[in-house]
Amino acid sequence: MNDGTSSPGTRVLGALTLIGMAVLLAFALVISPADETQEETVRMFYVHVPTALVAFGAFFLTVAASVGYLLRRSEGWDVMAGASAEVGAVLLAATLVSGMLWGRVTWGVYWTWDARLTLTALLFVLVLGYLAVRRLPLERERRSRLAAVVGLLLGPATVACHYATTWWRTLHQGPTITTADAKMDGTMLFTFFLGMVVFGLLYVWLLVHRFRVLWLEHRVEDLGLDEAIAERRREAVGVS
């Protein structure tokens, strides 16, 4: 019997994520070398960039699931969109915090109104707004439809945030890995890709759990509604 949201599959995924995270920590903090320019602060790169990219991926899944919901009106798509946005919000918050700490040592300030930073903050506020819409006390179908429409806004906001360093002159560093003349130490590159895999696994693991939690919330909501209807019926029979 299952006593929560875990299953054999999620336990395996969780174990892989934990092992991967331990290996990533070893590479990020011990094995990989310090950078010539950024010195030790380069070790924030292995958490900052993967959390940002995985968060962007999470928001694209929210957009896709929102489109799926608007086309099919299926509860699964709605729950998927909400679960992905929740996990994405956590990862984006992690990106903002790690970025602020990195900024303090690189630029001398925790925050500056640079295009990339501003758009990331706006994206975070938009996600919080989306999650707030999902909690509105409305009839579920109406709430899901409204959330799906708001969820679509995450698409252009994420694209603008991702390309901010290309479209505008920013203090924030531009593309590093994807540029043709990218020169990076092999261990550093490996650590970065390991970070992408580990934070990707972490995202999938949390996504599955959050999906199940939201689905259970819907079932509890249904049970509460059924109880209320049954109670009303009993009252009506008692009156007549």
């Binding site: 006593d3 929560g4 790690s98 303090r104 972490l202 949390l206």
Partner: peptide, 29 residues
């Protein structure tokens, strides 16, 4: 700052995972 960064990120993720598991168990019952 590097250690603060990693601790903050991992603590946030762990908190979400634990709270999610607790809520899942409570709802599943």
């Amino acid at each position: 700052l590097v250690l603060a960064c990693w601790v903050a990120v991992l603590a946030a993720v762990a908190l979400v995972a634990v709270r999610s598991a607790q809520r899942g168990r409570r709802l599943a019952r």
